[in-house]
Design a protein around this nucleic acid. Sequence first.
DNA 1: CTGGAGCGAAACGGCACCGTTTCGAAGGGA
DNA 2: TCCCTTCGAAACGGTGCCGTTTCGCTCCAG
Lengths: 194, 194
Amino acid sequence: MSGAASPLASSHEADPRVERSRHVIFSAALELLGEVGYGGLTVEAVAARAGVGKSTIYRHWSGKLELVEEAIRTLKLGPIELTTGSVRDRLVEVLTELATNMADSTWSSCLPAIIEAAERDPEVLSIHRRFAYERRQQLVDLLAEGVSRGEVRRDTDLALLAESLIGPIVLRRLLLHEPLDPAHVPVLVDQLLE
Amino acid sequence: MSGAASPLASSHEADPRVERSRHVIFSAALELLGEVGYGGLTVEAVAARAGVGKSTIYRHWSGKLELVEEAIRTLKLGPIELTTGSVRDRLVEVLTELATNMADSTWSSCLPAIIEAAERDPEVLSIHRRFAYERRQQLVDLLAEGVSRGEVRRDTDLALLAESLIGPIVLRRLLLHEPLDPAHVPVLVDQLLE
DNA sequence: CTGGAGCGAAACGGCACCGTTTCGAAGGGA
DNA sequence: TCCCTTCGAAACGGTGCCGTTTCGCTCCAG
């Protein structure tokens, strides 16, 4: 025991084979999550899709739930860098990127399954909720700057306004089932910033 | 064959036993849909919850999918009657009712499962989409009246505005996982109608 | 070079649910 | 009243996934 020399300093795995396995398994799991949903996902199918033995999966995770929990953690959308321009322009930028991802991305295709899973499992719920709050906070920060710049009314509930901006994008994807055209984002922003 | 006298005029079933069976089965199915999701739903569990033999279910539906399709059709939220008052006040009324239902109702508890199921099955998708469009249209009509009354700016994309109003309510339920307090609906409305 | 760790494949018993069938009881319509 | 439908319960074989184990191979580290 004790791991002999042990690669303590190394943040993660030492053996490249493990890293490779984790990667193909996560990819397969997310693909299938989008295709068949959480309830329809099986460890056997993930193994087959990944071209991996079931034993390899059970060697690293206790089962489907733990695997999915870790897999969706890898789903973070790339953070957008933006510093210049008016608050209005940066809002358009952020929301256009969101609308684009919502129209087509691994994240978007997994979203219904994640919402479902979050409803049943506290850990998935926690991951997903944190992700959503961070996204909203990004907008709230931007809107706060808008207030100090005079681009946004002073007496505004910023969280609610942020939700009104994100809302249509999410709603179209999940309820109306046709994504918001990213090109319409400026209309949305200008309409709410009056 | 031929059904003898046949209750042609009667819109549905003649035998009250059938009607009763359908009702308890739908209730059980929707309860379970909210509890375990579409993927986790089994015909056996529905039968057990309903206190019914499996044979009774298979006598009426071909399987889980067909049963769920019919069950969610019974989920229509009661239409709200409203005719008097300003457009702003009626908006508050409609959205408060939506927020209340979103916070606690059979429909709300089934929503994640329905979204999931709509992603996999075209028939569920069609039912859900129609429902969502009707809901939005109700708001668009109201907003159109608001335009003619001068309560809403003339150059507004009404569909988008309607989505900005509904968006926060849906978003809080599905992504942030804490329903919008119905008492905050007036803030939302006044903020977007400026 | 050599030992050990991680690997893919295959097979295991077990179990939950499938969809069907059979049965006797109960209840409604004529 | 009596017939006929629907009912709940139980049992059926079939299937797909579970999670484990074994095996021989491959590849990395020392």
